[in-house]
């Protein structure tokens, strides 16, 4: 494939993923239904995964989908299902009045960084960065167990504490019955 075509495709991909992220974010903020908001979140997560792919980091992209879309969002869904209120979702009528205001705020929140970035980019246009070579899985592992071993171990301690907490909570609930 020609270099120029590849460049063009990269722009198209970037625009597409950007659109996905923004559309997902808007859907998450604007919808009155919690589940639809969750769908917006998932759309955004997909867009971010696409951005990772564009930056030649497929491992991160697939992990994003595996963990955030496949596991975390399903757990959020579970939480929504367990807390379902029978008559619609909290204050659905009042929401309508809020939508206009919230839409304005959302657009503002999205536009402010965009305007600042755009002025910066227009004033000092940086040269397009060359695509970094893909970091292999082996390299990633060596980094995690080498220079970043402290952070890695700290995260595992946090996860262990969370798991132990979950088990303790489970046992207490059982005693209560």
């Amino acid at each position: 494939m020609g270099e120029a075509l590849q460049q063009q495709l990269a722009y198209v991909g970037y625009g597409l993923y950007l659109l996905l992220i923004l559309a997902g974010g808007l859907a998450a903020v604007m919808s009155t239904s919690l589940v639809r908001a969750l769908m917006g979140l998932i759309l955004t997560l997909f867009g971010v995964a696409g951005m990772f792919l564009l930056m030649n980091a497929p491992f991160l992209a697939f992990m994003q989908i595996l963990i955030y879309v496949g596991a975390v969002s399903v757990l959020i869904f579970f939480a929504i299902m367990l807390t379902k209120t029978p008559e619609g979702e909290a204050g659905a009528e009042n929401m309508l009045e809020w939508i206009g205001l919230r839409a304005g705020l959302a657009v503002l929140a999205a536009l402010t960084p965009a305007i600042i970035m755009a002025t910066l980019i227009v004033k000092k246009a940086p040269a397009a960065l060359a695509l970094k070579p893909e970091v292999t899985l082996a390299q990633l592992g060596e980094f995690l167990t080498g220079p970043f071993v402290l952070a890695f171990e700290l995260i595992s301690v946090v996860l262990l504490a969370a798991m132990a907490g979950a088990v303790v909570l489970g046992f207490e609930r059982r005693k209560g019955k």
Partner: peptide, 18 residues
């Protein structure tokens, strides 16, 4: 033919639960 093929399958088949 991709290096992370197995991961790709695991990631996208997780969408079924959703």
């Amino acid at each position: 033919n991709m290096n992370l093929g197995l991961l790709l399958i695991l990631a996208f088949s997780g969408l079924n639960a959703l």
